[in-house]
Write a protein that binds this DNA or RNA. Structure first.
Length: 107
DNA sequence: TCTATTTGACCCGA
DNA sequence: TCGGGTCAAATAGA
């Protein structure tokens, strides 16, 4: 299996919970497949939060991690985001030699 | 044995 | 119709 696949998980730092991969699909326009994660175990059905990891075709060393949904399963007691609608927070975090773009989407 | 992970197929929306 | 997203079943590893 693809080293790329494992590479995906290699970069994934555990935020506060464990994520269960429930799917993977190749996206047109991207040379790398996108992975879909969800809360595992008991939070499987209670946490609408979903995690989406996609590699940038331009920068294989850059991973775009998109969190979408409420942070029911996260320990984000203080959310700087109070505005309604869709708020996107983009932050650049560097893990070792790779850079990751974290985007938080609250629906 | 249990849980997590993987692949394929199906479903829904634009 | 195509693309994207999700679910389910099977398999592997601990």
């Amino acid at each position: 299996m693809a080293a790329a696949r494992m590479g995906n998980m290699e970069i994934q730092p555990d935020d506060n919970y464990t994520w269960r991969k429930y799917g993977q699909k190749e996206i047109l326009g991207s040379r790398f497949p996108r992975a879909y994660y969800r809360c595992t175990h008991q939070k499987l059905y209670k946490c609408p939060a979903k995690k989406q990891v996609q590699r940038l075709d331009d920068d294989p060393y850059m991973f775009r991690v998109t969190y979408r949904g409420s942070h029911t399963c996260h320990f984000f007691t203080k959310s700087p985001i109070s505005s309604a609608a869709v708020t996107a927070t983009t932050a650049t975090v560097r893990y070792g030699l790779c850079s990751a773009i974290w985007t938080l989407l609250f629906l």
